[in-house]
Simulated assay, not measured.
Amino acid sequence: MSKKSRKKSSKTPSGIATAKKKAPKARATTQTKSAKTQRTPARKSTATIAKAASHKAASKRLTSSKSVPIPAAAAKATLAEGQKAPAFRLPRDGGDVVTLADHAGQKLVLFFYPRADTPGCTREAIDFTRLAEAFTAAGTAVLGISADPLKAQEKFRDKHKLGVPLVSDETHEMLEAYGVWGEKSMYGKSFLGILRTTVLVGADGKVARIWRNVRVDGHADEVLEAARSL
């Protein structure tokens, strides 16, 4: 065999060997890409499942919150119309003390609000202030009651120029006696607080009307009409 023939034949096997070595690298790269492609959807589906599970858990918490047992202190008998109004003695803004006996022989409106200087409570207090003279003309006194400390009540009064006495019941004794301290829920969580309620006490000292789950808009006007009709 000539030298030229030997050179040609020697190149051919080495070329094949080189191609064989390169081919596995190409397959490995393809397999890696394929593996990444397969893993990516798996991660997305896991995230989707996690979100769905979280949503279901939140829904369960919201549903189960309704069945949370109410402590005995908040489960007292509800005040009813026709019953004698429970007596109370509590501090009010300005440092004075107010009692039920102070209003003997006079009609009395007690509006219980959850918290001073919150939007709904502010509108309600402003509405009763707006009608203060009309209530006086109807022989009716008006008191606003919450569990806020006196400093918060006085700040609330000054900020909005309120013209009705604001009473503080931090011990919740009056709130419980009038059946306005109970279970509430917000964002799926249950807690105890003031249920927005208004009580109209007649001149005879008995409960004439009770408004529960009060909607603020137009409420003060409705209470005024009820007081005038007594």
Rank of each mutant, 00 (worst) to 15 (best):
V142W: 13
P149A: 06
Q31F: 00
R27S: 13
S45P: 08
A220F: 10
A116V: 00
T78Y: 04
L175C: 03
V180L: 09
I210Y: 05
F191V: 07
A26R: 10
G144W: 04
V199R: 11
A101E: 06
R123A: 12
V199L: 14
V199W: 08
G95A: 07
G94Q: 10
K189Y: 09
R39N: 13
P165Q: 03
S168M: 15
A147D: 12
T29A: 13
I210W: 01
L90S: 00
A47F: 07
P149Y: 01
K51W: 05
K7G: 05
S14E: 15
F191P: 13
A52H: 14
G218M: 04
E225L: 02
E225I: 01
K84F: 01
V207C: 13
F88W: 02
F111K: 11
A104T: 01
V180T: 10
G182R: 00
P149R: 08
D93F: 00
D217H: 10
S34A: 14
Q38V: 11
V199H: 09
D148C: 05
D96F: 09
S10F: 13
R212M: 03
V98Y: 01
K44E: 14
G163F: 07
A77P: 07
K189T: 12
D148A: 07
K206T: 13
G120E: 04
R39T: 04
T12E: 14
L108A: 08
A77R: 00
T78R: 13
K151W: 06
P86Y: 04
P24C: 10
A47R: 12
G182W: 00
E222V: 08
A26D: 10
T12D: 15
L108Q: 04
D117F: 03
G202E: 00
H55V: 15
T136F: 02
A73L: 03
K22G: 06
P69E: 03
